[in-house]
Computed example of a mutant assay.
Amino acid sequence: MKQLIPPTLLAQAKKILIVTHMAIGDFTYMQMCFRALKRAHPHLEIHLWVDERRRSANPEDWPHLKNYSLYDWLAASPYIDKTYDQNYSPALHAQSIAEARREDYPIVASLTHMACHRYARLTREICPRGFILGLAKQKYRFFELSKKLSILKFNATIPLYESQERDVPHVSDIYAQWFSKAFGLDIPKPDRYPVIHIPDQWTAYARDQISTWGLGSKIVFINTYSKGPERCWPLERAFELIREMRSHPQWRDAGFVINVVPEDLPAAREIYNNAALPDTHLFSAVDNFFQLPAILALCSLIVTVETAVMHLANAVHVPVIALMRQNNPEWVPIDRENSAVILVKEMDAWVTKIELPEVMEKVLSWPLC
Score class of each variant (00 low, 15 high):
residue 147 K to Y: 09
residue 12 Q to F: 10
residue 359 V to E: 05
residue 199 P to Q: 11
residue 232 C to D: 13
residue 97 I to G: 02
residue 253 D to K: 13
residue 200 D to L: 12
residue 235 L to A: 08
residue 321 I to H: 04
residue 292 L to T: 06
residue 87 N to G: 14
residue 349 A to M: 12
residue 163 S to Y: 10
residue 320 V to P: 01
residue 7 P to H: 03
residue 218 K to A: 12
residue 132 I to Q: 05
residue 193 Y to H: 13
residue 334 I to K: 04
residue 80 I to S: 00
residue 329 P to F: 07
residue 51 D to P: 02
residue 349 A to N: 08
residue 251 W to L: 13
residue 311 H to E: 12
residue 313 A to K: 01
residue 126 I to S: 05
residue 229 P to F: 09
residue 266 P to Q: 11
residue 17 L to D: 06
residue 127 C to M: 07
residue 272 Y to F: 15
residue 25 G to S: 14
residue 65 L to N: 07
residue 174 I to W: 04
residue 203 T to K: 14
residue 214 G to V: 11
residue 218 K to R: 15
residue 29 Y to H: 12
residue 69 S to P: 14
residue 48 L to A: 11
residue 134 G to K: 04
residue 312 L to Y: 01
residue 233 W to T: 08
residue 113 H to Y: 13
residue 191 D to Y: 07
residue 207 R to C: 06
residue 260 V to P: 01
residue 235 L to W: 02
residue 317 H to M: 03
residue 212 T to V: 14
residue 80 I to A: 02
residue 102 R to G: 00
residue 232 C to K: 15
residue 279 D to C: 14
residue 206 A to P: 07
residue 350 W to V: 01
residue 135 L to I: 10
residue 143 F to Q: 12
residue 302 I to H: 05
residue 342 I to N: 11
residue 25 G to R: 07
residue 127 C to W: 02
residue 146 S to D: 14
residue 157 T to Y: 05
residue 367 P to T: 07
residue 148 K to I: 08
residue 103 E to N: 14
residue 201 Q to H: 09
residue 365 S to C: 11
residue 307 T to N: 15
residue 337 E to F: 06
residue 293 P to V: 05
residue 43 H to F: 14
residue 153 K to S: 07
residue 219 I to W: 04
residue 128 P to V: 09
residue 38 K to M: 13
residue 84 Y to R: 06
residue 167 D to E: 14
residue 100 A to T: 01
residue 334 I to V: 12
residue 106 P to L: 07
residue 170 H to F: 02
residue 218 K to P: 07
residue 350 W to S: 06
residue 322 A to I: 13
residue 54 R to T: 08
residue 17 L to Y: 07
residue 286 V to L: 03
residue 241 L to T: 10
residue 324 M to H: 03
residue 324 M to K: 08
residue 313 A to N: 02
residue 310 M to P: 01
residue 366 W to Y: 10
residue 155 N to I: 01
residue 112 T to M: 15
residue 108 V to D: 03
residue 51 D to R: 08
residue 201 Q to R: 12
residue 156 A to P: 02
residue 190 P to T: 09
residue 194 P to R: 05
residue 197 H to F: 03
residue 230 E to G: 08
residue 332 V to N: 01
residue 144 E to S: 06
residue 244 E to A: 15
residue 248 H to T: 07
residue 308 A to P: 00
residue 303 V to Y: 05
residue 289 F to I: 05
residue 86 Q to A: 15
residue 23 A to C: 11
residue 45 E to N: 09
residue 286 V to Q: 10
residue 270 E to C: 06
residue 3 Q to M: 13
residue 207 R to W: 02
residue 327 N to W: 09
residue 355 E to G: 09
residue 98 A to R: 15
residue 96 S to R: 10
residue 14 K to R: 12
residue 184 G to M: 02
residue 86 Q to C: 11
residue 170 H to S: 05
residue 31 Q to P: 04
residue 79 Y to G: 04
residue 172 S to C: 11
residue 24 I to G: 05
residue 158 I to K: 01
residue 6 P to F: 03
residue 54 R to M: 08
residue 289 F to E: 02
residue 2 K to S: 09
residue 80 I to H: 02
residue 228 G to D: 13
residue 314 N to W: 03
residue 362 K to T: 10
residue 330 E to I: 05
residue 99 E to A: 14
residue 205 Y to E: 04
residue 119 Y to G: 02
residue 198 I to G: 00
